[in-house]
């Protein structure tokens, strides 16, 4: 295993009774990136993360983390924010962070300086001596996140970190994650928020029904999808648009037209053909979003044949 790989899972399986939560999962997370684990509810994301953290043992397969055979031996180098998370309600904020730091093996003298600075950075410095149950839900989520990263871990695993956050706190958390990557850290996060994932993640893996459906750098995944939708505005006879053999479907869109091209059609060829017949005022190839890829992949994945094809695409 090279040093540039933070996490590696090979053919990992996990079942709970008759339910196969994770099936033959392969995953390689390079160090120093933000890696998103995407998938609908019940896809197996949390189970995969719990196996990574050695909280649940896999039935089969191999897991490596930070060069070690198990997460247990590198626990102190990994920060973890689980999906099901809580805090000691009666404990003071600073005491909570000190405790979470110390059980990660951070000496008390280091935490004495680190805790006020970290609280200052997220705007909660004045709440250090307050009890946790006096904080708002958003503040508590910030403290939970801080608890996961208080030990300055090399790898941070965040299970649904954005769930329940308002836009301001969501932005604050996003900035914290970006800062960690800038500092050389590796972040593995699971989320339902596709826009956030597309904005933040260098790479994503899409899991559906326990199986990997898509995996790779975000830009590469988006570029794999044929850009079949173009937005056009033309000066001339618009009624002739559907007559193009290259066009499968035409709809009105913001004063122009949204054309879905036939499979395999090169948008440039369509532009050339269009320009030969009329004056083109606007021509925009609509880029697919991660949400669209997600939805398309998940609907494909309900059919085993399509899922196998999807995995081919992923490779």
């Amino acid at each position: 295993m090279t040093k540039s790989v933070a996490v590696r899972m090979e053919q990992v399986d996990k079942s709970f009774g008759s339910v196969r939560a994770v099936q033959g999962l392969d995953l390689t997370v390079p160090a120093g990136c933000i890696y998103g684990v995407l998938g609908p509810n019940g896809a197996g994301k949390t189970t995969a993360i719990r196996m990574l953290m050695d909280i649940v043992a896999p039935d089969h397969g191999r897991i490596e983390m930070l060069g070690a055979a198990t997460a247990s031996s590198v626990k102190d180098r990994v920060g973890y924010l689980p999906e099901e998370r809580g805090l000691y309600r009666k404990m003071r904020v600073a005491d909570t962070l000190r405790y979470l730091g110390q059980i990660k093996g951070v000496p008390a003298r280091v935490l004495r300086e680190a805790i006020p600075a970290r609280l200052e950075a997220i705007g909660l410095a004045s709440w250090a001596s307050h009890r946790v149950d006096e904080l708002s839900k958003g503040m508590q989520q910030k403290i939970q996140f801080l608890g996961a990263v208080i030990s300055d871990p090399e790898l941070v695993i965040l299970d649904e970190p954005f769930a329940g956050l308002d836009p301001i706190n969501l932005e604050a958390l996003t900035q914290q994650i970006l800062q960690m990557r800038a500092g050389g850290g590796t972040i593995l996060l699971s989320t339902h928020m596709m826009e956030q994932a597309q904005r933040l993640c260098d790479s994503v893996v899409l899991i559906h029904k326990g199986r990997k459906v898509l995996d790779g750098p975000v830009r590469e995944i988006l570029s794999r999808v044929d850009p079949r939708i173009v937005l056009v505005e033309i000066d001339g006879d618009e009624t002739g648009l559907p007559e193009f053999a290259m066009v499968e479907q035409v709809e009105r869109h913001n004063g122009g037209w949204q054309c879905t091209l036939a499979e395999g059609t090169d948008p440039q060829a369509f532009l050339a053909a269009l320009a030969g017949r009329c004056r083109v005022l606007r021509f925009e190839v609509k880029r697919p979003t991660l949400t669209e890829v997600f939805l398309a992949s998940v609907s494909d994945a309900t059919d085993p044949a399509a899922m196998a094809a999807g995995q081919e695409v992923a490779r």
């Binding site: 719990r50 953290m53 909280i55 626990k75 102190d76 990994v78 973890y80 924010l81 689980p82 099901e84 998370r85 809580g86 805090l87 000691y88 309600r89 979470l100 059980i103 990660k104 939970q144 608890g147 996961a148």
Partner: peptide, 14 residues
């Protein structure tokens, strides 16, 4: 600890 769901955080360190 179990009902407040802090236990998984603890098990990631201990």
């Amino acid at each position: 600890e179990k009902s407040s769901r802090i236990v998984e955080v603890l098990l990631s360190a201990l």
